[in-house]
């Protein structure tokens, strides 16, 4: 993320890799530290001034704060925006590696993003005989 809007000063050169949000982050698969799929990146959350606020010179460039998932996918496709409380966040600090997939440095078990999976597992799938049977 290098853009800082319509400022006249050219964007400062940043150390490290440049990631294109659309090309390298959006709609990518997210795996946890064991390689288990957690979700897909449905949207991104940036820090910075509110949408309508005037941007003053010297305001720091927005920073990527979290990967978003959950209902935000529906609103991204059909319009609107869910209230902030309904966003399911995966903090950017948890992201360990960005490649063709995003790898987290933490286990998916405790993430908010996995609650539907855990609910279906505990309430339905694990209760069917053989649900915890290893197929191998």
């Amino acid at each position: 993320m290098t853009s800082s809007g319509d400022s006249l000063v050219p964007a400062p050169r940043l150390a490290g890799r440049t990631l294109d949000a659309q090309l390298h982050l959006m709609d990518r698969q997210v795996l946890d530290h064991d390689g288990v799929p957690v979700t897909t990146v449905d949207d991104l959350e940036l820090s910075g001034p509110a949408l309508e606020a005037e941007i003053r010179p010297g305001t720091p460039a927005p920073v990527l704060t979290a990967l978003l998932t959950g209902p935000v996918l529906g609103t991204r496709i059909f319009g609107g925006r869910p209230p902030s409380s309904r966003l399911i966040r995966i903090p950017w600090e948890d992201v360990a590696e960005v490649d063709v997939v995003l790898k987290l440095g933490v286990s998916g078990e405790r993430l908010d993003a996995g609650w539907v999976e855990r609910w279906i597992r505990d309430k339905i799938i694990a209760r069917i005989p053989g649900g915890r049977h290893d197929p191998r």
Partner: peptide
């Protein structure tokens, strides 16, 4: 952080 600032990035289809 201002929660309203969550900016949506619409991937260009």
């Amino acid at each position: 952080m201002d929660p309203g600032a969550a900016r949506r990035l619409e991937a260009k289809v």
